[in-house]
Write a protein that binds this DNA or RNA. Structure first.
Lengths: 147, 147
DNA sequence: CACATTACTATCAAAATGCAAGTCGCTCGA
DNA sequence: TCGAGCGACTTGCATTTTGATAGTAATGTG
């Protein structure tokens, strides 16, 4: 779809989608969150065609989600690491994963655990101030010009 | 991309993307969450081509996110309403929107408010049990076969 | 030197997208 | 009853994007 239209839309969801609005990008970010940094890591993990991976990595770098960093001069080798915006995006993916586990979790499926304690983690989206789950709050959008 | 591969993958994020993994689907669900139900509502709101909208609505219905309901027999008219899975998905979108507002919120952008109190809502993804933000927790995935 | 590793490009067919225009069933107003 | 209009699409076709496969480039390793 046309990313340009979304980029400067007034809806935050649209803007978010402009940065990471396709499945490959999200899966790459998920992998990056699990510690992968290198081209071949992503390629083998995802089974993505290399030309597509090249393009996706480039758009994620341009969108400010990943940073490309040279880790070896000779031979020239680059790795891709999450920026702050990229790291901040991971909880959104985890919320998505939690939702999918709840509703479409039949059969073998992995689960999110605390790396230190091993405890299962169930992501939940709440209002930061009150801690109330968003599913309990009727919401609307306030447009920029409104009272 | 190839949805089939994702559908039965063991990663919850992949499964989630198989249900709602493209920008149009997410925007349709966002609109549905804002109360829109009819074909033309979606079409005008999103500026999406009608053939594409038809296809997206059909896949969302098949994925169990929307339910198609006849609201008039003569003339025959259908509307699309969120299923429980679809409603549950909205907080994920709101988390995405919150993330985008934080990192790419320059210029006019709308904000999420409580429909009753009018208070601004800042979505945050936490662990449901402890209330700790996921951004503070180092996480891994436990594969289905693991101890 | 042969081969492996890492990080890609190039080519080209197949699929998805997007625009414009048309269709179908029906209602309503003149 | 004729025509305009509405809601919800479908059809055709050009453009764009994707994906599979193969190849390239720089270097290190036995």
């Amino acid at each position: 779809m046309d990313i340009e239209k979304l980029s400067f839309g007034i809806c935050p969801v649209g803007r978010g989608l402009a940065r990471a609005g396709d499945a490959w990008s999200m899966l790459i970010l998920r992998d990056a969150g699990l510690g992968r940094t290198r081209f071949d890591d992503f390629q083998k993990s995802l089974g993505i065609a290399p030309n597509i991976l090249t393009r996706r990595l480039a758009t994620l770098v341009e969108a400010g989600m990943l940073e490309r960093r040279r880790y070896s001069e000779r031979p020239p080798r680059d790795e891709y690491v999450l920026t702050e915006a990229g790291r901040d995006y991971l909880p959104v993916l985890q919320a998505l994963g939690g939702w999918a586990r709840k509703h479409f979790g039949e059969g073998p499926i992995s689960e999110l655990v605390d790396a230190r304690s091993g405890r299962t983690i169930t992501p939940l989206v709440v209002d930061a101030e009150t801690g109330v789950p968003l599913s309990k709050i009727p919401v609307t959008l306030r447009q920029p010009g409104d009272a």
